[in-house]
Design a protein around this nucleic acid. Structure first.
Length: 206
DNA sequence: TTGTGGATGCTCT
DNA sequence: GAGCATCCACAAA
C-alpha cells in the first residue's frame, strides 16, 4: 500500500498550486525536532493561488509581514497562527512573487508515531494528524519554523514516484466569494484514514 | 451517530 | 476593532 517515494528538486514545486496539490498526495513530510523525528504521509491538501486571483488566500490583498514567505521560493514552509490557538502549515508553490501555496489539511503518521501520540494525548491513531492544526501539533512544528526550507534539515520532503488516485471538491472553512464550489481546489486520497469528513459545508453565517 | 456553537489571540485594516 | 484556511465539548436523535 505504501507508494514508492522519490526525492525531487525545488523546481518540482515551482508550479501552479492547483497542479501541485494532487502531486503532494502520498508525499511524506518529515520534521526532526529536539524530541525526535516525525513523518507524515499527506492525504489531504488544499491549493491557494496568489494575489488578486484567490479571495481565499492570505496573499489575496498583497504581501504582508505574515504572508511574506509565500512570495518567496517554492518548497518553503509557510506557517501561520489562526483562531487564537491553531497553527497551520503550508508548502509554498509557484515561482517567487506568485504567492501560491498548498495547505496541508491532513495525513497519517508514518514515522515517530509514539512521539505524535504523546503530543496528541487522547486522540486515536487515525486522528493524530487528521486536520490542519492537528497535523502541526503531531509533527511538533512550531510557528517559528515558518520560512524554513522544506528540502533541508530539520525538514525533508519526498513525493510519490507515481501519481496517486485522488478526488477534489470545494475548500472548507472559507466564507465569502472565495469559498464553496467556485474554487474546488481541495484534494484528497479517497478512502484514506487521514482524510477528515469534517465540516462538509462551510459554516453559513449571517 | 450527527450537528451546533463557543473558545481563543494573532494579524490586518 | 473585527475577522479568522479550526477544534472540541456537548446536546439531540
Amino acid at each position: 500500500m505504501s507508494a514508492r517515494l522519490v526525492t525531487v528538486g525545488r523546481e518540482y514545486f515551482a508550479r501552479d498550486p492547483v497542479e501541485l496539490g494532487p502531486l503532494l498526495l502520498g508525499a511524506v513530510l518529515a520534521y526532526q525536532s529536539d524530541e525526535g523525528p516525525v513523518a507524515v504521509r499527506l492525504s489531504e491538501v488544499e491549493a491557494y493561488r496568489g494575489v488578486g486571483e484567490d479571495p481565499g488566500s492570505h496573499a489575496f490583498r498583497g504581501e504582508t509581514r505574515r504572508n511574506a514567505v509565500m512570495f518567496g521560493e517554492a518548497a518553503h514552509l509557510y506557517a501561520y497562527f489562526t483562531y487564537g490557538m491553531h497553527t497551520c502549515l503550508n508548502i509554498v508553490a509557484g515561482h517567487p512573487g506568485t504567492s501560491a501555496g498548498v495547505l496541508l489539511r491532513g495525513g497519517t503518521i508514518v514515522e515517530g508515531i509514539e512521539l505524535a501520540r504523546e503530543r496528541r494525548a487522547g486522540a486515536s491513531d487515525r486522528d493524530l494528524a487528521r486536520g490542519p492544526a492537528r497535523l502541526a501539533v503531531a509533527m511538533g512544528v512550531p510557528l517559528s519554523a515558518g520560512g524554513s526550507d522544506l528540502l533541508a534539515p530539520p525538514f525533508s520532503l519526498v513525493v510519490a514516484a507515481e501519481p496517486v488516485p485522488f478526488e477534489h471538491g470545494p475548500r472548507t472553512g472559507i466564507s465569502g466569494p472565495g469559498g464553496g464550489a467556485a474554487f474546488p481546489w481541495r484534494f484528497w486520497i479517497p478512502g484514506d484514514p487521514g482524510v477528515s469528513p469534517y465540516r462538509r459545508h462551510a459554516r453559513s453565517h449571517a
